[in-house]
Amino acid sequence: MRVALFVTCVNDALFPGTGRATVTLLRRLGCDVTFPTAQTCCGQMHLNTGYPEEGGRLARHFTDVFADCDAVVVPSGSCAAMIREQYVRLARVPASTASTASTAFAERVAETVPRVHELSEFLVDVLGVTDVGAYFPHRVTYHPTCHSLRGLRLGDRPVRLLEQVRGLDLVPLPAADECCGFGGTFAVKNPAVSAAMCADKARNVTATGAEVLCAADNSCLMHIGGALGRQRTGVRTMHLAEILASTEAVR
């Protein structure tokens, strides 16, 4: 199966290891992975911070770049949710103000968006696998992240994948469904509340005794990991793709 990777700007610039792990994992499962190099950013930061002009431009760029792909895989819950929820809203223009450009964008969105899958959705729903042949002999706790949980409604897909990883000891995270306080620019616009939320999340993570905190979103992991690191807890953060890509061979 031919799969286009939308690595996301955060992963591209800050977490390239997640992108490489996604490639490794998908190839191991028999996918032919491509990386359209014209891709940049889904526009989430701009749209969610109140810059619909820039955000809309990036959304149009995304739909242009990925227009002809059979399947697009995104190793980020929030970027996938952004594309699925907000692109559809952006494309909804009242008939009275519709233009050729807005109609073309709406058509692109209607064609492209259904083919965009978050990584765990793609594995479980499209490829139909939960055992991806991974080996990771560590104690891990999973944070579901808001956009994966309440945006994409990923449900237990990531957990089902983690449960099949050999050697992995999955421990439940208390108050897992609570936001970590990242919220994109919220983290710097409302630093006090963001830090208070993050402190509670970090406390819950350390209480599990896990060595590794896993999520399907590096932006949330960057936030919680920033607090875990500052507090010298010794808990590592790892994207779901990196755990699923681990095998005995590469250990």
Binding site: D12, F15, F35, T185, V188, P191, A195, A199
Partner: peptide
């Protein structure tokens, strides 16, 4: 500023030497 608002309570992630796209180009997709 936004950077200090972040680093007050949180470490910044380490910036990698090579971005994903440069890795992809350099290694022809690994």
């Amino acid at each position: 500023g936004p950077l200090s608002a972040w680093t007050e309570t949180r470490d910044l992630p380490e910036i990698p030497a090579e971005s994903f796209r440069d890795w992809w180009t350099r290694t022809d997709g690994g």
